[in-house]
Amino acid sequence: MNVLQLEKVRKTYQNHVAVDEVSFSVPEGSIFGLLGPNGAGKTSLIRIITTITRADSGVIYLNGDQLNGSHPTQIGYMPEERGLYKKMKVGEHLTYLARLKGLSKKEAKTQIDYWLEKFEIQDWQKKKVEELSKGMQQKIQFIATVVHQPKLLILDEPFSGLDPINTNLIKDEIRELRKKGASIIFSTHRMEQVEEICERIVLINQGKNVLEGNVKDVKNQFKEHLYRIEYDGELPSNINIGDGLIKQEEEAIIVKIDNERDSNLLLSQMLQSGTHIRLFQEILPSLNEIFIKQVGSN
């Protein structure tokens, strides 16, 4: 079951196509990476999903229903550019945002107390937003996004302005929310974070869907069949690598082996030669490399 499904979604502004027939789906209970360079159309796409704007054509399903005006209460959106009312008190502010998402006063209080306690920041309740540091405000933003227990969370650069400790704190919360049944769309430029957190990704460039799939599959799709082998001493002379040798270092080689069976063959040959092998590893491209390659080639 997909929590979100987009079919040929298209959105044009005056003279340019922001989203060009984009289709992808987000499986329920997954952490999904929405990637793309600046100006690729990610924000336009997110605004369509959060019903801020409407697509010119195409269909969007949320939990199997076509997207409609009641859906925002099921979505929690944390925009990249985000702010809070500086003069409001933290507690009041959170209550306000929670109630706009349809929570009653009582429900809002329960949820807010839960989260403030969880982050151990109960004493911020009465503080004004302007008294908080940027990182503290980000935490409040996060709580505001999840306070109504949305089925779908859309986080746009959620870690910007957070120190490593708080980044981990939020990461853990994201994972825990997923465990509780929420699905998360995660948009960022930080590829190492995507690799760490996301299971599936979609890459958008110039409004178009460039690639989509499981992180593992995507990596496999772009792998160059390179292997790194590290060993003690000299490379055995009986081993035939042919023109597959890409690079030779001291006690290490990088070879290109197009066929997976050949890699097993090479490994067994090396074992038979009695060489002590320290490492035999297929080199998979990082998402960063794939990203740059895909976006650059367009």
Binding site: I52, K86, L97
Partner: peptide, 12 residues
């Protein structure tokens, strides 16, 4: 300017 609208319009 403080980008509060971005947060608000996802709800209202």
């Amino acid at each position: 300017m403080t980008r509060i609208v971005e947060v608000m319009i996802s709800s209202v």
